[in-house]
């Protein structure tokens, strides 16, 4: 059986050269056994057009660099096998993030901003004591925290979220999930009212309209709907208590 001919339609735009309007460029390559989009895009860059911009780091679906729209579906390019796609493949950069060029978007700045706004660190007055044993924690709780912490900040959930696309300040499912991770963690001493200030508003949980594109998209399978609902319930109670 002869290998398939793959036709890529790739979004091209360089913000430094606004005179060239955004367009899609077509590339044809031959499919290889076990080919991923990581392999395919590098082949295009190495052999056809060395100026094509895209981001890969770990190429093993761990680092979250390569989120993009693959035939309209947001996912990690590194873990997408070409054999799961039709021979016409359209690639667009993730929406909602600042476009750096072609398929490359600035997720880093967005996520750092989100982390600052949700104050994504352990809030505590306890000084670390080098000589003391660690605090005990039930392993099931540790697993539960890890479940939320598995988010790799690829931005796919943000890219597909309508709200995040039209409301710049919305922290997205990833942000709300982040807050849920700290809510679960007994080492973080914030009370419900402090969390309410962070996430009990339209930029946070009450901005979510419940379309669940995030959950349908998350490439690492974080149970986002459950995390969103958990925060919503917690914040509803907190709102009730609030003076």
């Amino acid at each position: 059986m002869s290998p398939r001919q793959l036709t890529f339609h790739i979004f091209r735009y360089d913000p430094d050269r606004p005179e060239v309007k955004p367009h899609t460029q077509t590339f044809k390559i031959e499919e290889e056994m076990g080919m991923t989009l990581f392999v395919a895009l590098n082949k295009i860059r190495d052999e056809i057009d060395p100026t094509l911009k895209f981001d890969f780091v770990c190429r093993a679906s761990i680092c979250g660099s390569c989120g993009m729209l693959i035939n309209g579906k947001a996912s990690l390019a590194c873990k997408t096998l070409t054999k799961t796609l039709p021979s016409d493949i359209t690639l667009f950069p993730l929406p909602a993030f600042k476009l750096l060029g072609d398929l490359s978007v600035d997720t880093g700045t967005w996520f750092r901003d989100m982390s600052m706004r949700t104050e994504s660190w352990i809030h505590t007055d306890v000084e670390f004591d080098e000589t003391a044993q660690e605090e005990k924690m039930d392993d099931d709780l540790a697993l539960e925290i890890y479940e939320a912490e598995r988010c790799i900040e690829c931005g796919c959930c943000v890219g597909v979220c309508v709200t995040a696309n039209i409301r710049q300040n919305f922290i997205g499912a990833t942000g709300i999930n982040r807050v849920s991770r700290f809510m679960l963690d007994p080492r973080d001493k914030r009370d419900e009212q402090e969390y309410f200030e962070v996430v009990g508003n339209d930029d946070g949980i009450f901005g979510c309209v419940g379309l669940m594109a995030c959950e349908d998209t998350c490439p690492v399978g974080v149970p986002l709907r459950g995390q969103l609902a958990y925060v919503r319930r917690k914040m509803t109670v907190a709102g009730w208590h609030r003076k």
Binding site: I122, F128, E130, K136, A142
Partner: peptide
């Protein structure tokens, strides 16, 4: 060992003895 515990204090959800 100190570094592991420090990272725990900073939020790493280390797997625990079950």
């Amino acid at each position: 060992p100190i570094a592991v515990r420090e990272m725990s204090a900073w939020g790493v959800p280390w797997s625990r003895v079950r």
